[in-house]
Every structure is written in structure tokens, then in C-alpha cells.
Design a protein around this nucleic acid. Structure first.
Length: 545
RNA sequence: GGCCCCAUCGUCUAGGCAGGUCUAGGACACCGGGUUUUCAACCCGGCAACAGGGGUUCGAAUCCCCUUGGGGCUACCA
């Protein structure tokens, strides 16, 4: 490895970091870390219409949560800065100027409508559309005049037509493109901003990027970018390309952020009588906006989608990295799982800490075929990472999680939380842990009884009777410890010649409202005798006829 | 429509580049059993794949071609 590796992740800040982007970032990062190279974060915010001011911050926060740090980029600086493309327009202008002067690029004046018509025509003739290059390039004066007439002016790169463009891809090998299939693409938009295909070439060169690792969706852009690089930077060796397979969704097609609104919409439509006024309010929308959403005409932003889903109790598929955080997944899990989406170490290892991932990572082992994002396997990975992670780290993650979901369990101190973790062996997500212990922190007046649980264990059979006996025994106990509670419950079950479950379940529902909680003996001792007795009394009163 | 990529169990994949050791290995899921105070977890066992057709070769999951299927791109988005 003679040359120092430089990789970059170049997201456009349009919202949260989603799994696809996170995987790209991870691969770039892993390769840089593996080789002792440099990992750059560059924000591609050249689309004035789509940028939201906080999106870049959000993306960076999400990367940090995953443990992906950058050596150069926003917040840390570096020799190739600035790292926001919107702050580099003078650089791009310079190169556009040069290309124009050398007649390797030219002005165009078509409107989007006119271009659209041309495209349609090409398709009707079963041809691929390529922009028809004019015989004589318009002059600078022509451009001025057009501008003065209010015409939109763009600049196109004249793709050299002399020979096939051959891309050497680290994953797919040699891929040849016919130059006349590529067509002169726009490098500068009418608002003066560069297009992605232009800015990324200039920046990759200036930032000395050696390896471009990105999704396969960029494969078709590559010949054009490569041609541009050759014309612009004849002195610089081409970067190496590695196009990763696409991650597809179980819903079919590329995993997309649109899946969340789609899932919510489907859920709303499945609900016969829904209070649109209330729902609109929850989502911070006007009723008209909500109707537009339901009618498929508009899509509200993510926080709004989340809020509505939450109030309806609908579980949306996780797509963004924060979604996984909120569902109780560990960053260690995500990193491990994402790494295995399109890469593997070549042996049977699957569950790996990040250090091992870095050690094992190699671009030569990227997979060619698309892979499906398997949520069940993700859960299995999370279970394993929860088990493996050092206690202190897990505790930290749990605390972050509790804060973000605003759980009442945040009230617990570290010692208590640590004990709870011990009692949750086998938990699949942090949400499992939270769900099992939240009853302790709820306050007896706020217990919500789960209908199904109540029917099944209290109302059916002699659940209430059993509960009454349990209560009497508990009240009579001298010492309220786990051991004593266990002895008592076991002998009670024996007396009644039933399994422990028959005794424990009514009790569980009485103190938590559900059939799922920490082990029953610990649940009781954690709650304390007084609170336990009170909850049982409340339950008996409420459900006894 | 055009261009490009891909193809091993339901899913992720190992093996393919250097054909025989592959009656195809692992993991998740699933099914059966065990353990059990709930949910999980855990233990044991099982089911399950080289898309189809042609070549090349003594021999093909592995190399070549075609078909079929899946995916991506086709913007003054990135």
C-alpha cells in the first residue's frame, strides 16, 4: 500500500441519515481506518431547494452515534476545506470558466420543458436520450443576451467522443461505456450552482480522494465523471472506484425513506373511523394538509410522520439511523449489521465488534449482488450485542435511549439500572428492557391494564381468587425479600396444586398491568411491599364483580 | 424505451477469479423437542439452494453464450 488511502462520504443534507447512507459512510470509514488513511466528510449541499439548515447537523450527529468519526470535514476542518460545497462555488466557477474557455464545455438555453419534450421523443423512437451537441458553441455574448431575455442558462460538459470510456471498478471489474451513450451533461445549473456530477469530481481531486466507495446507483454517473476528470486533471491519476450493491427492502425495490410515510398512510387507511382533526393536530398539520397526505398529494416531514404514527400506535419500519436508536438498537449492532450488508470477512464470523470489523475489512470482499435488509436478523444481532457489550457501555446506551424516548425509567440511578440490566438477560432491544421495568416508575395510579392480559389471567379461571390469597400471604410476611417471596409463592402454588405460573401471572398483571415484566420475585421486591399491596388492592377492586 | 449491474437454501452469504476435495458450509428465519414464574434467552434435532437452456471439458455451482428473472440509472437531485 504505497499511497495513503483517502476516502470520503458525501451526503446531501436532505434529512436524517438513513441506513443506505450509513452503510456507505461505514464502508468508506472502515477502509480508511483499516489502511491508516484519511476519512473525509463532505456535505453536498448544492441543491438550493432541498437543503434544510439542520439536516447536515443531524447527519453528523447520526454518524457520531454510530461511532463514525471523520478526519476532515465540518466541525473538524482540514487542508481541503471548506467542506460544504455551498461554500466552494468560487472554486467550481473557476473550473467551469476554464472548460468554457477551452471549448470543452458550452452554454445551453433550453427550458426543462423543452428538454422533457426531447426526451419523450427519443423514447418514442426507442432511443436513449442524449443532448444534441450544437455544431458551434454559443459565445459568452450569446449567453449574456439569453440571460437578458430572461432565459435560463446552463453549462454542459462536452464529453470526448473519441473512444469508449472504461471504468475499472474494484467490485465489478472492467465496464465499458460507449461515449455517445453518455451525452453532454449539465455541470452548472442556471442558478449558478454546480451539479453533483461536476462538484464531486472537482472536490475529489482537490481533496486528493483515492477511493470512491459508493452505491451502485452511481455506476452510470461514473463514465461521465471519469471523462471530466481526465479533461480537467490530466495530471492526476484517477481515483479507484468501488460500487457497492444496493440494499433492497422487503417492501421491494431500493430501501427508501419514503417507506415510513407509506406505512403510515396504509395504517391510516386501514382504520375505518379516524379522527382527522385530532390526527392533524398531533402531526402539527392543518386538516387540509392531512387530507392532502391521505389523498397521496403531499408528504409531511419526518417529525410529523413520527408523531402521528406514535399517537396511532403504529409501528413504522425503521429506515433512518435515529429510527433504530429509538427502537432500542445499539450502535454496535448497526455498525456490525451494516458492514455485513454487501461485505463479509470470508469466513463464518458474523457477530463482530468494530475493532474486528476494521481488522478484517477489505474492498476485495465486497459482494456484487443486491442484499435485502433483514430485520429479523438485525434483532438477532442486537440480542447478541446486548449480551456481549461491557456493562458500563450498555448502561450508557440505555440511559441515552431512556432520555430520548422520555421514559419514566430515567429516574433510576445507575445502580438500579445496572440491576435491571442483569435481570433482563436475553433482551432483544433496549425497548425490551424499558418495557419490563417501567411499571416500577409509573406510579400506581398510572398503571394501564392490558385488556387481553386482564381477560386471560384475571377474569378467566380463578385468577382473582388466587390474587386475593397472594395478597393475604404477602401482607402477612415478616420479611419482604426475593427469597421469602419466592418460597411463599412456590408453596402457595403447591398448596393449590398448580404451576407457579398460575400464581405469578395474576400477580404480575396486578402490579404492572401486563403479562410481561422482570422476573416476578424481583418485580415485587423492587416495587416494595406497600406499593405491591396497594396495586393488588386496586386491581381486585376494579375487576371483582 | 435506452444504458448498466446482478443471479447458491425463505433471507444474508461461503465456495467462483487459480474447474475435481461441494452427496454445497455457516448465520437468521421456520418446524420438532427440551428448559421455564411472563416475555425473551438458552440447549438438542430437522427442513431447505447452485434460475432455465446450450456449449467448453475426462469432469462445471465454478469458464463462455443465450433465455428468464431481479435491481439501478435515465433531472438545471445527489
Amino acid at each position: 500500500m504505497a499511497e495513503k488511502v483517502v476516502t470520503r462520504f458525501a451526503p446531501s443534507p436532505t434529512g436524517y441519515l438513513h441506513v443506505g447512507g450509513a452503510r456507505t459512510a461505514l464502508f468508506c470509514w472502515l477502509w480508511a481506518r483499516r489502511t491508516g488513511g484519511t476519512f473525509i466528510l463532505r456535505i453536498e449541499d448544492t441543491d438550493q431547494k432541498r437543503n434544510t439548515p439542520t439536516a447536515a447537523e443531524q447527519v453528523m450527529a447520526d454518524l457520531r452515534w454510530l461511532g463514525i468519526d471523520w478526519d476532515e470535514g465540518p466541525q473538524v476542518g482540514g487542508p481541503g476545506g471548506p467542506y460544504l460545497q455551498s461554500e466552494r462555488t468560487d472554486i467550481y466557477d473557476k473550473y467551469v470558466r476554464r472548460l468554457l474557455d477551452e471549448e470543452k464545455a458550452y452554454y445551453c438555453f433550453e427550458t426543462p420543458e423543452e428538454l422533457g419534450a426531447l426526451r419523450k421523443e427519443a423514447e418514442a423512437q426507442k432511443r436513449g436520450f442524449v443532448y444534441p451537441r450544437p455544431e458551434h458553441f454559443p459565445t459568452a455574448e450569446d449567453a449574456e443576451k439569453a440571460r437578458a431575455r430572461g432565459r435560463a442558462v446552463t453549462v454542459r460538459f462536452a464529453v470526448p467522443q473519441d473512444e469508449p470510456i472504461v471504468v475499472q471498478d474494484l467490485v465489478r471489474g472492467e465496464i465499458a461505456f460507449a461515449p455517445d451513450d453518455i451525452g453532454d451533461f449539465i455541470i452548472q445549473k442556471s442558478d449558478g450552482f454546480p451539479t453533483y456530477n461536476f462538484a464531486c469530481v472537482v472536490d475529489d481531486y482537490l481533496m486528493k480522494v483515492t477511493h470512491i466507495i459508493r452505491g451502485q446507483e452511481h455506476l452510470n454517473n461514473t463514465p461521465g465523471q471519469q471523462a471530466l476528470w481526465r479533461v480537467l486533471f490530466a495530471d492526476g491519476p484517477l481515483p479507484k472506484y468501488a460500487h457497492m450493491s444496493v440494499t433492497v427492502s422487503d417492501a421491494g425495490g431500493k430501501l427508501s425513506k419514503r417507506e415510513r410515510p407509506k406505512a403510515l398512510l396504509a395504517a391510516i387507511k386501514a382504520m375505518p373511523d379516524i379522527d382527522t382533526n385530532k390526527l392533524a393536530e398531533v402531526g402539527g398539520l392543518t386538516v387540509e394538509q392531512l387530507q392532502a397526505f391521505i389523498g397521496g398529494k403531499a408528504t409531511p416531514d419526518m417529525p410529523s410522520i413520527d408523531a402521528m404514527a406514535n399517537s396511532l400506535g403504529v409501528q413504522l419500519p425503521e429506515i433512518n439511523i435515529v429510527d433504530f436508536f429509538r427502537s432500542g438498537y445499539l450502535p454496535e449492532t448497526m455498525v456490525n449489521f451494516l458492514a455485513l450488508l454487501g461485505w463479509n470477512p470470508g469466513d463464518d464470523r458474523e457477530i463482530m465488534p468494530v475493532d474486528e470489523l476494521i481488522q478484517s475489512f477489505d474492498l476485495s470482499r465486497l459482494t456484487k449482488a443486491n442484499s435485502l435488509f433483514d430485520r429479523q436478523k438485525l434483532i438477532a444481532f442486537n440480542t447478541e450485542h446486548i449480551r456481549m457489550l461491557p456493562k458500563q457501555k450498555l448502561l450508557g446506551h440505555l440511559r441515552d435511549y431512556l432520555e430520548v424516548i422520555a421514559s419514566p425509567v430515567v429516574a433510576a440511578d445507575d445502580e438500579l439500572l445496572s440491576r435491571i440490566i442483569d435481570l433482563c438477560e436475553g433482551a432483544r432491544t433496549l425497548a425490551d428492557i424499558e418495557r419490563k421495568c417501567r411499571f416500577i416508575f409509573m406510579g400506581s395510579d398510572r398503571i394501564e391494564y392490558d385488556d387481553k392480559a386482564v381477560k386471560k389471567v384475571l377474569l378467566k379461571g380463578d385468577g382473582l381468587d388466587t390474587l386475593q390469597s397472594v395478597r393475604d400471604e404477602l401482607a402477612a410476611m415478616e420479611e419482604f425479600s426475593e427469597d421469602k417471596i419466592e418460597n411463599m409463592l412456590r408453596s402457595l402454588a403447591e398448596q393449590r396444586s398448580v404451576g407457579l405460573g398460575k400464581v405469578a401471572q395474576p400477580l404480575r398483571v396486578a402490579i404492572c398491568g401486563t403479562t410481561v415484566s422482570l422476573p416476578i420475585f424481583d418485580s415485587l421486591s423492587l416495587l416494595g411491599r406497600e406499593e405491591t399491596l396497594e396495586r393488588i388492592a386496586t386491581t381486585l377492586q376494579r375487576f371483582r364483580v
